[in-house]
Design a protein around this nucleic acid. Structure first.
Length: 576
RNA sequence: CGGGGCGUGGCUCAGUCCGGUAGAGCACUCGGUUUGGGACCGAGGGGUCGUUGGUUCGAAUCCAAUCGCCCCGACCA
């Protein structure tokens, strides 16, 4: 391709509204333009990179027996109502009405549609397993699109679905996908971590996210460098030091704490307690039923863990009025001692974090403003309905699986694989007959990759002050040829010859035939991030050109006759 | 949804406080010089100042409403 024939609108200055590196660079280097919040046009360079990612995904999906489909993006409300997700998806789903007034939606994922195909066409265990996938546009009306292509409202997803007759089949299908995902991300040049994750609105028993570490990411993950334990903080647990609490009195003692409202206040109050000796009492509305959530004073609740532990779909902190009405005190003086369904009918249940198990001699609110209780023995004095891991792990805490210490860092989710089980096959009625004549719901898995996110994560991972540095496997071109002055006929004929030879050799080359000064061409080539550059300049007098490596920004002189060979060797070296 | 910021040629921004007929740099067009890391000189073209309404002799500027975008938080497979 000749640069003069390609639309590459590079910008000399950074776009004003781009914060994260990938957003700034993709706009500046002429890859994307925004149409509206969270909706981007992909320009030719971006589309080339996107197609590289797609081809890698397609090859690896086909390799594990995947069959490619293309499903509609417009869905009737009915199937979403059948699965129950018409409600669950809430405002995140783009909804519309057709001319007859029928409710429709733009697809945010395709469990419903794939399952509806399966239920009509798969009747026997003999037709299983099936591995179905598609690469298609998804629509999600995100409350807050941000960070360029990292969080958008319209994007390409590879979504795959597996159908098996039993759990063992699902385990194998899941493992196949897991292995394929590892190959895909490795081939795309990403450094990634596979982590245990919460399944959220997808449902199902187990899920793994594929995360790329970057400050631009919105998820946080905990990783053990010793044993490889890795989990999203929405799921991660950690090992805490054991407490040997002193024996306390035989019942809690109420004491006045005028004006003390926070955990911090009580740590300095005479007769108070250190944060790890306090019980923090939070009030949440879970599906509009009030629940007391108990945490150790120095611990932070993770709301996703609370949602997972309680099974609640709608979860929010209770309003101050609700709290006072239910417990008779304001936030800051709350406690769970003596709270039962009989004594406090507004409180549906008490959920406690497992770090409070067996703790004694603790301090907590007395449900009376300006009073607290000390000498509280959790299991003696509080009727906990449900114990769960609710705490957000912190860096430096012990790994739950070995003696190591956890790291916690930000990451972006590029893929997520779920063992769905029978949630959708049951709600949508996709069943098969087994060999013994009994009927069972199909056991399903669901597996997604955000295509543009893969590209964007690569840009986050690989860039420098001059621009993007693409991994060779997904770069829009392998090499750019830069004749330093197009008016020099001799120089141009060398450049043209090298270009023709590269094309013939199957190496994707971009010939910068623009009538620009060398500096402009060099800067643009660095910006768009093509892995190699062949500079054709005055050294052709000695039969040489320069081979410049974008990643290291170093160049070496190469004989014109052996340039193809030299470049091929470098391409092969980096693609390992 | 709560908080903050911003809407002025294609891009980056000044002008808004204190009302007086719209500017710079880059980009673009033409001519000339230049030519290995975003050249220079000269001459040009291009703007309903987000939108609507109001105040005023007069509004980019003041007031109100509204739309859009960005950031933080909430939310989020």
């Amino acid at each position: 391709m000749r640069w003069s024939d390609l639309f590459i609108p590079t910008l000399r200055e950074d776009p004003a509204d781009a914060e994260v590196a990938s957003h700034r660079l993709l706009v500046r280097a002429g890859y994307i333009r925004q149409l509206t919040a969270g909706v981007y046009s992909l320009l030719p360079l971006a589309q080339r990179a996107r197609l590289k990612v797609i081809n890698i995904i397609r090859e690896e999906m086909n390799r594990i027996g995947g069959q490619e489909f293309l499903l509609p993006a417009i869905h009737p409300a009915e199937i979403w109502k059948e699965s129950g997700r018409w409600e669950v998806m809430g405002e995140n789903m783009f909804r519309l009405r057709d001319r007859k007034g029928a409710d429709m939606a733009l697809g945010m994922t395709h469990e419903e549609v794939f399952t509806s195909i399966a239920r009509h066409t798969i009747n026997s265990y003999r037709q299983l397993p099936q591995v179905w996938y598609q690469i298609q546009t998804k629509f999600r009306d995100e409350a807050r699109p941000k960070s360029g292509l990292l969080r958008v409202r319209e994007f390409t997803m590879k979504d795959a679905y597996t159908f098996d007759v039993d759990r063992a089949g699902l385990d194998k299908s899941f493992q196949d996908q897991y292995d394929a995902y590892c190959r895909i991300f490795t081939r795309c040049g990403l450094k990634y971590t596979a982590v245990e994750a919460s399944s959220g609105a997808m449902g199902g028993s187990q899920s793994t996210e594929f995360m790329v570490r970057t400050e631009a990411g919105e998820d946080r993950i905990a990783v053990c460098p010793e044993c490889g334990y890795a989990a999203n903080v929405e799921k991660a647990t950690s090992r805490l030091a054991e407490y040997q609490d002193e024996e306390d009195a035989d019942k809690p003692e109420k004491f006045p704490t005028p004006g003390m409202r926070t955990i911090e206040d009580l740590t300095t109050f005479p007769g108070g307690a250190s944060a790890d000796r306090q019980i923090k009492t939070l009030v949440y509305a879970l599906n509009d039923r009030l629940t007391l959530v108990l945490m150790r004073g120095d611990h932070e609740l993770n709301e996703t863990k609370l949602a997972d532990a309680s099974g609640a779909l709608n979860i929010r902190p209770a309003h101050p009025e609700e709290i006072r009405e239910a417990l008779g005190a304001g936030a800051g003086s709350l406690g769970a001692v003596g709270v039962t369904r009989a004594s406090h009918p507004e409180i549906d249940r008490i959920i406690a974090d497992s770090a409070l198990r067996s703790r004694r001699n603790m301090t907590t609110g007395a449900n009376q403003d300006d009073f607290h209780l000390r000498g509280v023995s959790v299991e003696r004095d509080i009727q906990v309905d449900h114990w769960a891991s609710l705490r957000t792990v912190k860096a430096g805490e012990g790994c739950p699986e070995c003696e190591g210490a956890l790291d916690v860092f930000k990451a972006v989710e590029v893929g997520h694989i779920f063992k769905l089980g029978t949630k959708y096959s049951e709600s949508l009625g996709a069943r098969v007959l087994q060999a013994d004549g009994s009927e069972v719901p199909i056991v399903m898995g669901s597996y997604g990759i955000g295509v543009e996110r893969v590209m964007t994560a690569a840009v986050e991972l690989y860039n420098d002050e001059a621009g993007i540095v693409w991994p060779e496997s997904i770069a829009p071109f392998h090499v750019v040829i830069t004749p330093v002055n197009i008016k020099d006929a001799e120089l141009m004929s060398v450049a043209e010859r090298i270009y023709a030879e590269l094309e013939a050799a199957g190496i994707e080359a971009l010939l910068d035939d623009r009538d620009e000064r060398a500096g402009v061409k060099f800067n643009d080539a660095d910006l768009i991030g093509v892995p190699f550059r062949i500079t054709v300049g005055k050294k052709i007098k000695d039969g040489r050109v320069e081979l410049f490596t974008r990643a290291s920004r170093t160049s070496e002189d190469v004989q014109i006759a052996s340039i193809i060979e030299s470049l091929r060797a470098k391409l092969e070296a980096t693609s390992e």
